[in-house]
């Protein structure tokens, strides 16, 4: 293969992106040292602030509610990751069965819409429709004999609501990538199956799903980077004193204690902790995908 000798071309192709990353990502990473500093606004800066070792991390883990908050974050984020993967995956397959192109495209466009509304707006809408005091959802539940549910004021229901509304908001947008993967499936596979007399269910099971799995693995692995991001905008708009115990997450607490007060050292320390956990999970799942399925995610 003559391609071997051309590997300088490969390096050249990557170079522009690499330069951008060095300038805008790696250079600023020097700031990670702030995690180990009592970062002073002035008279210090990144290179002059006093070193305090792991003090910032101690502050983070010494709070009475540290474990609770980290667990809340992990729990909500993990379920969001799972359902944000399953929902678009399933939806793409179901949509694939709608034969009329017009219908299929209309549905695609409709489910894509909620992604574009901010949580400030959706928070207000949720407050209305989930109200125990004549909200749409509770009236519907009442019609089938279920007592009103305090969706936003009861800890477990709050978690449910946060996850469900996030999945509802994002599944349409997440579907796009699977639709693109579906478009890449070689139609001759289906033709062959048809000739063999395979049922549609069999075709889905043996052609469609396996073709989508690599994409699902890629999206799933990368989304592990969010394992400690439970969705600041959403929770910040929806949470309230009744659900602090089950709904307070790392980002809301960092916002209250560090961002509002300009404690950049502490914020960096929390960020570093989150990054390390995410990175560990990504490395693990990358390894698993490679060992089990011999597939390199990236």
């Amino acid at each position: 293969m003559r391609g071997f000798k051309r590997s300088w071309q490969f390096h050249l192709m990557i170079l522009p992106s690499l330069l951008f990353l060095i300038v805008f990502a790696y250079l600023p990473m020097a700031g990670i040292v702030m995690a180990f500093q009592d970062f002073k606004l002035l008279g210090g800066g990144i290179f002059g602030s006093p070193w305090i070792g792991l003090e910032n991390f101690r502050t983070m883990f010494e709070r009475e509610d540290s474990l609770q908050v980290i667990w809340n974050t992990f729990f909500i984020a993990a379920l969001k990751i799972i359902f944000n993967l399953l929902a678009p995956f399933t939806f793409a397959i179901l949509l694939n069965e709608v034969r009329k192109a017009f219908l299929s495209r209309t549905i695609q466009t409709l489910v894509y819409l909620p992604h574009f509304l901010s949580w400030v707006i959706l928070g207000g809408i949720l407050l209305n429709i989930l109200s125990t005091d004549g909200g749409l959802v509770n009236r519907a539940l009442g019609a089938i004999g279920i007592d009103p549910i305090f969706f936003l004021g009861e800890g477990n229901w709050f978690r449910f609501t946060v996850i469900a509304s996030e999945v509802w908001k994002e599944f349409g947008y997440g579907t796009i990538v699977f639709l693109a993967a579906l478009a890449n499936i070689n139609p001759s596979l289906y033709e062959a199956a048809e000739v063999d007399g395979a049922s549609r269910w069999k075709q889905t099971l043996h052609i469609t799903i396996p073709s989508l799995i690599p994409m699902a693995v890629v999206v799933g692995t990368l989304s592990l980077g969010n394992i400690l991001n439970a969705g600041f905008d959403q929770i910040f708009n929806l949470y309230n004193p009744l659900v602090y115990e089950k709904g307070d997450i790392i980002d809301t607490f960092v916002y209250r204690t560090a961002i509002m007060e300009g404690k950049f050292g502490f914020a960096t320390a929390v960020g570093l902790f989150k990054s390390i956990v995410s990175m560990a999970l990504i490395v693990i799942s990358y390894r698993i995908a490679y060992k089990v399925a011999n597939y390199r995610v990236f």
Partner: peptide
């Protein structure tokens, strides 16, 4: 007398 969802 006060909103049922005053906490929200």
């Amino acid at each position: 007398y006060i909103p049922q969802e005053a906490a929200l």
